[in-house]
Computed example of a mutant assay.
Amino acid sequence: MKFKYLAITALSAVALYAGQAGAADKKTLAIVVKGLDNPFFEQINLGCKKWLSEHADSEYKCLYTGPASSADEAGEVQIVDDLLTKGVAAIAISPSNAPAMATRIREIAPKVPVMTIDADFLEPDRMLRKTYLGTDNYLMGVKMAEQAKALKAKGGSVCLQLGNVAAANINARAQGFRDTLAGAKNVDRLTGQNGWKEIEGCPVFTNDQADLANQQMSDVFTAHADLDAFILIGGWAQFAPQAYTQVTNQVMDKLKSKKLVIIAGDTLPPQTQAFREGRSHAQVGQRPFEMGYRAPDVMIQLIKGEKVDDPLYTGLDVCTAEAPGFCEKN
């Protein structure tokens, strides 16, 4: 299942903007996300648009773009390359493939400020950007592990569902999750620590595709009838609510009894609906709208040479049955 929020391609959006910006004589503050097919990033877009509506008289304009598909890592690198070639005042990047994007930024050596948003570069490459704006992803993994421990005090068998293999933010969440359950640092895999063990064939990688995420869940549930916990490190499967409903219908009795627990990342509307229906036991949500809304101001500070903290964390929202909080009405 693909999400089609825009009728034009990312590259044509860049070209279209170039003409509009020239006429308006606006300087470009570019936000480049992993893919326009992911509704999580649409929230960043809405934040960018909100900033734009409140700064109509500014000399700057917020541009949101990215490849049509979240699986197009090379396409994202090319868009960043094109934007920097055409000329932008500053750029905020959510790298799908962190090493590949860092390599290209190093080659281009742009003179304009570069920051990361939502996903960061790997630690050895962080000198290439001025700051990171987004989630403390390791902490997000910790929060998900805390919910797993609360629901399964004795541990159990678990499957982690991840995104792209080289996505630094997703991998940081997985690290926080594993370390917290194991009670140790830099754990590569749960092999029985404190009763937790990752099953054979997991983790699974969705490549940020909702249809693949749901198929993977279904396959795991079929192959491992005694699974104790399934962890959506990102919310991919829930972004396709109809398919997610069908998949969780397979195991609703287990979900109701908590023989099987599901913990998922993010709190977009279809996800909070799934939570209220008992199709997940906890949601740990990021704040993507805030990322998109704050990014232009951060870029302007960088352009002006002002001191900006690094990192800039946007916080988390945790929803549980006992404290539904953000998920109760959203």
Rank of each mutant, 00 (worst) to 15 (best):
G265L: 09
A243Q: 14
Q286S: 11
A321D: 13
I262W: 03
D297L: 07
Q271P: 04
C327Q: 06
A240F: 13
P241G: 14
F230R: 04
Q283D: 10
Q286N: 12
L316E: 08
I233F: 02
K258T: 13
G234I: 12
G315V: 06
D253L: 02
A264P: 03
A295P: 03
H281I: 04
F289E: 02
S257R: 08
I231E: 07
P311L: 09
G305F: 02
A225C: 02
K304M: 03
G325Q: 09
L268T: 10
V298M: 01
E322H: 06
C327N: 04
W236Y: 12
Q246H: 11
Q301L: 00
V220T: 12
G325K: 09
Q273S: 11
G315M: 07
E328I: 07
Y313K: 07
A240Q: 09
A323M: 04
F275Y: 09
G325R: 08
P324I: 14
I231H: 09
P269C: 13
P270M: 13
C319R: 04
Q238T: 12
I300F: 01
I303A: 08
A282S: 14
R279W: 04
L312W: 07
K256T: 11
L260Q: 01
G292T: 05
G305I: 03
I231A: 05
Q286C: 07
M291A: 06
G278L: 03
K259E: 15
A282V: 04
E306K: 14
A240N: 15
M291F: 07
V251W: 08
L312P: 00
N249C: 01
E277N: 14
L316A: 01
S280R: 10
D226V: 10
E277V: 06
I262Q: 05
A237K: 06
E290C: 00
A274M: 09
M291Y: 00
M299S: 01
W236T: 13
H224Y: 15
Q301D: 15
E306N: 12
